[in-house]
Simulated scan of single mutants.
Amino acid sequence: MTLRREAFLDRVQERGEYPSRREADRAARVVLALLGAHLVGGVRAQVAARLPEDFALILLNPLQSAEPLSPERFVRATAAWIEGATEQTAAWDVGAVLSTVADAVDQDLLGQILLQLPAGYDLLFGHPMPA
């Protein structure tokens, strides 16, 4: 089931404790553009199918990534794309968006997402995996 745009942004805004919907939207766009560069094939399409249309398009037309970023570098890249962000605020942005994505997909798809990402992303999605 696809989340409506308002519901998706409400969750991101609440989790990120953003004062405005605009800030939640900006965080979602940056994080999804970076995430899309790391997912391939059917997994990316399945995640996109669960997102509101404008966010799905961002995920499907990602920024190009030469190599998969470690979770730390993913947070740093997010900080670089959000004006005025620090690594601490970017970590918050990433967690707010990716935990909302995790809620939009089922456990099986989340597992497939995590298989395509370097180790440590489970924490960014708010779903720590047993060691």
Rank of each mutant, 00 (worst) to 15 (best):
Q46H: 11
P62K: 00
A33R: 10
L9T: 04
A90G: 02
V105A: 08
G111E: 08
M129G: 05
L35H: 03
L69M: 13
L51M: 03
P68T: 04
G111I: 12
E53R: 06
R22Y: 14
D54C: 05
V31D: 02
T89C: 10
R73G: 04
A80H: 10
R44L: 09
F74N: 08
L63N: 10
E87N: 15
R26M: 14
E87H: 13
A56I: 02
V75R: 01
V43M: 05
V101Y: 06
V94Y: 01
L35K: 04
R44C: 14
E6A: 15
L60F: 03
E14V: 10
R11T: 14
D54K: 03
S70R: 15
A79T: 00
P19G: 10
A131V: 09
L115W: 12
L115E: 13
A24D: 04
G120R: 01
R26H: 13
G84A: 13
R76Q: 15
F74G: 06
E72W: 15
A102R: 02
T86D: 12
A90E: 02
A79F: 04
A85W: 00
E6M: 10
A79M: 06
L110S: 02
L98W: 07
G120I: 05
V94W: 01
D10Q: 11
L69C: 10
D10F: 04
Q13N: 13
Q46T: 10
G111S: 08
Q112S: 10
V30N: 03
A49N: 07
A45T: 14
F74C: 09
A131S: 11
L60T: 02
V43I: 12
P68K: 11
